[in-house]
Amino acid sequence: MAAGGDHGSPDSYRSPLASRYASPEMCFVFSDRYKFRTWRQLWLWLAEAEQTLGLPITDEQIQEMKSNLENIDFKMAAEEEKRLRHDVMAHVHTFGHCCPKAAGIIHLGATSCYVGDNTDLIILRNALDLLLPKLARVISRLADFAKERASLPTLGFTHFQPAQLTTVGKRCCLWIQDLCMDLQNLKRVRDDLRFRGVKGTTGTQASFLQLFEGDDHKVEQLDKMVTEKAGFKRAFIITGQTYTRKVDIEVLSVLASLGASVHKICTDIRLLANLKEMEEPFEKQQIGSSAMPYKRNPMRSERCCSLARHLMTLVMDPLQTASVQWFERTLDDSANRRICLAEAFLTADTILNTLQNISEGLVVYPKVIERRIRQELPFMATENIIMAMVKAGGSRQDCHEKIRVLSQQAASVVKQEGGDNDLIERIQVDAYFSPIHSQLDHLLDPSSFTGRASQQVQRFLEEEVYPLLKPYESVMKVKAELCL
């Protein structure tokens, strides 16, 4: 049975990233139509530049190519590739079939990587351009969430054990800070992308030097003109047959890092959902379990974690691919890159769409948070109580021993009897502590235990987050809708 299948058929496997999760716009960027249309555009740009620099290419040939950029006979191309065992030459023939007058000058002087690699770089750039505003929107939604809850005390956790208090907004800023680093890295790697350009079979530009009869300047002009037509500021000066596969490492490393950030955020949300302090959106008709109707599973956060793990592992592909590119190139890269580049971007696209949807509907339960604080705060307040007693004339050592005994009794009630923490009640009825009984409410005010959390939130948002989001103001209103 021949390899390949009808990918629109229910009898043929289709990647869930495309069929179930990723956005239509990201799927289109990695589609065959987008790819092969870009090949034709690159052939047109090459012909236009070659004509401008004096090669015998007519206006009629150029116009014929322009008129057929979208006229792609995919069936013919597939048949040609089956016959020739070469995808680029299959599309040269297919393009030439609908451009008979231009057929002889299509791909003039070029090698397969002229269309293959340059198209990949265009796709990487455009895919990054799709991700950047999506990530900015996630940051914006979380920034709104953090600002609104900047002063809401909550129990902090280290080692997932109760620690000092923080605020809900401050905790959210930990998430935002990681995503801001990801946004900066995505922008950097996007701006650092260079075009492969017009380089020939081993990167020496020998074929173009021959076409222009040894004119170095025209060869350099050709490279520059096509690079500018493709919208790049610069091209690699040095290439082998391909652009260095280190570029793929750079791009997928940034995406993998984004995956790590999203995994951490969504894990926190899942843990908070278990504590009943916070939940992701839950639709009115949504079913959490087929057997347990009360369940409210954090399905979206779980999906993000599941896909983020996949995204983090994909960076190993370009690392290994770059390491086995012998001399000017081997074909070890080809099949692998067809999979890992598309999957990385479709996965990143999915987790950003999902995280935006989550961040637009996060639900906080202040009463649950308050109750958990009441359970733990008495123990945390013991040092403040000791200091207040010393100020009232008591002995630190005597007070410490009193607190120690009462704390152990209260802990026994919590752990052995399943009761509430009654340390404060014990202190309130103990005559030894009568000098500070009137101060206990103040000493137990949760806001006095959150330090500068709310001020940190305000400063972080104003100095770091809002300036970073400013270039994306025009796209901030787009909502994230999930079908599944």
Score class of each variant (00 low, 15 high):
residue 266 C to D: 01
residue 245 R to M: 04
residue 440 L to M: 07
residue 207 S to A: 12
residue 179 L to A: 10
residue 101 K to L: 14
residue 186 L to Y: 03
residue 323 S to T: 11
residue 408 Q to I: 05
residue 271 L to P: 00
residue 299 M to W: 00
residue 67 S to V: 13
residue 28 F to L: 08
residue 78 A to D: 13
residue 434 S to D: 12
residue 95 F to M: 10
residue 450 T to R: 04
residue 47 A to D: 02
residue 192 D to E: 10
residue 59 D to W: 08
residue 411 A to F: 07
residue 157 F to I: 03
residue 111 T to C: 04
residue 10 P to L: 14
residue 183 L to I: 11
residue 389 M to T: 00
residue 407 S to T: 06
residue 255 L to P: 03
residue 362 L to A: 08
residue 343 E to R: 09
residue 217 H to G: 11
residue 322 A to I: 13
residue 411 A to S: 06
residue 100 P to G: 06
residue 333 D to W: 04
residue 429 V to W: 12
residue 224 K to Q: 09
residue 171 R to T: 00
residue 312 M to I: 13
residue 189 V to M: 12
residue 112 S to M: 00
residue 232 F to S: 04
residue 192 D to N: 11
residue 155 L to E: 01
residue 62 I to D: 00
residue 126 N to L: 07
residue 400 H to V: 05
residue 461 L to A: 04
residue 58 T to K: 14
residue 400 H to E: 03
residue 136 A to C: 15
residue 86 H to E: 00
residue 462 E to D: 11
residue 400 H to R: 03
residue 89 M to Q: 02
residue 66 K to C: 11
residue 89 M to W: 01
residue 94 T to R: 10
residue 75 K to G: 11
residue 312 M to S: 04
residue 401 E to F: 02
residue 28 F to I: 07
residue 466 Y to Q: 13
residue 478 V to F: 14
residue 242 T to G: 06
residue 361 G to W: 07
residue 325 Q to S: 14
residue 313 T to F: 08
residue 269 I to K: 07
residue 205 Q to D: 00
residue 209 L to C: 11
residue 335 A to K: 04
residue 107 H to Q: 01
residue 100 P to A: 09
residue 54 G to V: 02
residue 340 C to V: 15
residue 327 F to Y: 10
residue 201 T to I: 04
residue 70 E to F: 14
residue 95 F to P: 00
residue 288 G to M: 04
residue 236 F to V: 07
residue 23 S to N: 12
residue 395 S to D: 14
residue 62 I to P: 01
residue 119 T to W: 02
residue 101 K to R: 11
residue 23 S to V: 05
residue 278 M to L: 13
residue 185 N to F: 05
residue 295 K to V: 01
residue 132 L to R: 14
residue 472 Y to V: 11
residue 68 N to W: 07
residue 451 G to N: 00
residue 292 M to F: 05
residue 97 H to N: 12
residue 60 E to Q: 11
residue 301 S to V: 13
residue 174 L to E: 08
residue 388 A to D: 04
residue 449 F to A: 01
residue 247 V to R: 05
residue 346 L to F: 13
residue 274 N to A: 08
residue 447 S to Q: 12
residue 81 E to A: 00
residue 139 I to G: 09
residue 172 C to A: 10
residue 330 T to P: 04
residue 225 M to C: 13
residue 221 Q to I: 08
residue 284 K to N: 11
residue 84 L to T: 04
residue 189 V to R: 08
residue 65 M to W: 00
residue 394 G to E: 13
residue 420 D to A: 04
residue 274 N to Q: 08
residue 414 V to C: 03
residue 218 K to V: 00
residue 469 L to F: 06
